[in-house]
């Protein structure tokens, strides 16, 4: 990075500019414009209408439910991701490739199906339906169902972030810690965790963003009870179907802002601790 750069030839500089223009044009048309639509529609009737739409009781309940579901499912997937990455990156065993494929599996399942599978298991007609009914346990059309569907959808994110990084880092530092007499957890918290913290954080951010934005799977297991089992994405659809476009897009802007906020946190961290992160990046020196 810090080696002296020669001043590029003018033709190459034009090439750079053209590439940058092409990339930003693509991003603008495909990503920024849809985002702009969301904000323009949300503020169509002014700030006051926007604020009152967000302050509605149902909208607040939806925000609370979304936060709750994410607060349960993201930590569970973090623990899974770390465990899976540790096993995959530090040990050789039979069926490792298969395990990797299974971790990616939820990406290739249609959201419609990922909701349906839990209905097949826990619905009144499902495998465990009768037992659950006898013991008065509610999973589908209640918070546990929403959490399960969200976990399913976001399961691969943390593991996928960590596995390649840990593989490329190798285990020399950890082995050294062990030789010097560190206990298992001591080694994990003192050596492994500091080494993977940035990738872990990024995995958490993505997992969280996707958890809060999931629509299809959650829609199948929600039951759409207003104020009780509607998450923010479902609330958006409901408001839109009530011709309350300002309300729908106002709630949607919260989700978009959330995405931008998590990303700014990431950008801020990179800027503040840039060198440290680069030192731990795959292939870093």
């Amino acid at each position: 990075m810090n080696r002296p750069r020669r001043r590029p030839h003018w033709s190459r500089r034009i090439g750079h500019v053209l590439l940058v223009l092409a990339a930003t044009a693509f991003l603008t048309i495909f990503l920024a414009l849809p985002l702009a639509v969301v904000f323009v529609e949300a503020f169509r009737q002014g700030l006051r209408a926007y604020l009152s739409a967000i302050g509605q009781h149902e909208a607040l309940m939806a925000i609370r439910l979304t936060l709750l579901v994410a607060a349960i499912s993201v930590p569970l997937n973090v623990v899974f991701g770390v465990a899976a990455a540790w096993a995959m990156a530090r040990f050789e065993f039979r069926g490792k490739a298969l395990l990797g494929a299974f971790i990616d599996l939820p990406f290739s399942v249609s959201p419609v199906i990922s909701g349906l599978v839990y209905v097949l298991l826990f619905g009144a007609q499902g495998w465990f339906g009768r037992w659950l009914e006898l013991h008065d346990v509610k999973i589908i059309f209640a918070i546990p169902g929403l959490v399960l569907a969200t976990i399913f959808i976001t399961l691969p994110f943390v593991a996928r972030e960590l596995i390649p990084l840990m593989q490329s880092q190798g285990s020399d530092e950890e082995e050294a810690a062990r030789v010097l007499g560190a206990g298992g957890w001591q080694m994990f918290f003192r050596v492994t965790l500091p080494n993977i913290r940035w990738a872990l954080l990024y995995g958490v951010l993505l997992c969280n963003a996707r958890a809060m934005g999931e629509f299809g799977a959650v829609s199948v297991v929600s039951g759409h009870i207003r104020g009780l089992t509607t998450t923010m994405p479902l609330e958006v659809e409901m408001l839109y179907n009530e011709y309350n476009y300002v309300g729908a897009f106002a709630v949607a802007t919260l989700l978009a802002l959330l995405a931008l906020a998590t990303l700014s946190i990431k950008a801020l961290l990179e800027w503040r601790y840039g060198d440290e992160i680069a030192a731990h990046a795959p292939g870093g020196h």
């Binding site: 209905v119 619905g123 759409h224 207003r226």
Partner: peptide, 17 residues
């Protein structure tokens, strides 16, 4: 409490619990 959705989907949800 209200739950709204496509009529068929709603019937199915009731059947499913």
């Amino acid at each position: 409490n209200m739950s709204h959705g496509g009529s068929g989907k709603q019937a199915r949800s009731v059947v499913d619990g």
